[in-house]
């Protein structure tokens, strides 16, 4: 496309950039329901969402907790995994841990949106939930953590809190099924 004879190529370029910009304008649904996924969310690779923290920003921290069920049927206490680092001045230039923090944040948001869209139903959650990417992401992460030596199954819990506003009591928003771990999982797979 380079060189002297550029007019047709230039026309195509104008078309591509114009269409991209036009779609970006149209895709900015200011009142988009954040609980529902739309076609614009599926176009995230090319159509940006420029609303940044608006109109309703996230005002809660998400917490991922897990517990094990032991061979005798008892349950261990919940413990939090994958927490957020306390803000330091270094984060203004170098913040590699943010990627993992944001992954928990994004997958929890997507999971809750999935539950909101597909409903819990009378007989528990939609069975497709356990095959969804956010559920698999969190489950895979949880099952790969260190477990109680006698654990046969594990479970994760999502809670939200007011972060530094400690008077705002944490609330449980999602509890997963119990899933086999360790030897129990291997026995099932074989």
């Amino acid at each position: 496309m380079s060189g002297k004879g550029t007019a047709p190529g230039r026309g195509a370029l104008y078309g591509v950039l114009g269409a991209w910009f036009g779609l970006t304008v149209v895709g900015q649904k200011l009142y988009r329901d954040q609980r529902k996924q739309t076609i614009w969310d599926k176009l995230y690779l090319v159509i940006p969402d420029w609303r940044f923290f608006a109109p309703n920003p996230g005002i809660h921290d998400h917490h991922l907790l897990m517990r094990d069920q032991l061979a005798d049927g008892s349950l261990t206490a919940f413990r939090e995994i994958g927490g957020v680092q306390e803000r330091t001045l270094l984060h203004a230039v170098w913040h590699p841990h943010r990627r993992a923090e944001k992954t928990v944040f994004d997958s929890v948001a997507e999971l809750l949106r999935y539950v909101g869209q597909h409903g819990e139903g009378l007989n528990g959650p939609d069975p497709s939930l356990q095959l969804s990417v956010p559920y698999l992401t969190l489950l895979s992460y949880v099952t790969s953590r260190e477990h109680h030596p006698d654990a046969v199954r594990t479970q994760f819990l999502i809670a939200v809190s007011g972060g530094y506003e400690e008077e705002d009591e944490p609330t449980m928003v999602f509890l997963s099924e119990l899933h086999a771990v360790g030897a129990a999982a291997k026995g099932r797979a074989s």
């Binding site: 609303r51 923290f53 109109p55 920003p57």
Partner: peptide, 28 residues
């Protein structure tokens, strides 16, 4: 767009959005 999306939001206009974003450990 970011400005307009905040302008139509009551929580941005009254400032509670700013306070509540800063209360999170994630973005605060």
């Amino acid at each position: 767009i970011a400005g307009v999306a905040k302008l139509i939001s009551p929580v941005w206009r009254d400032g509670s959005a700013v306070r509540d974003i800063f209360r999170t450990r994630m973005f605060g």
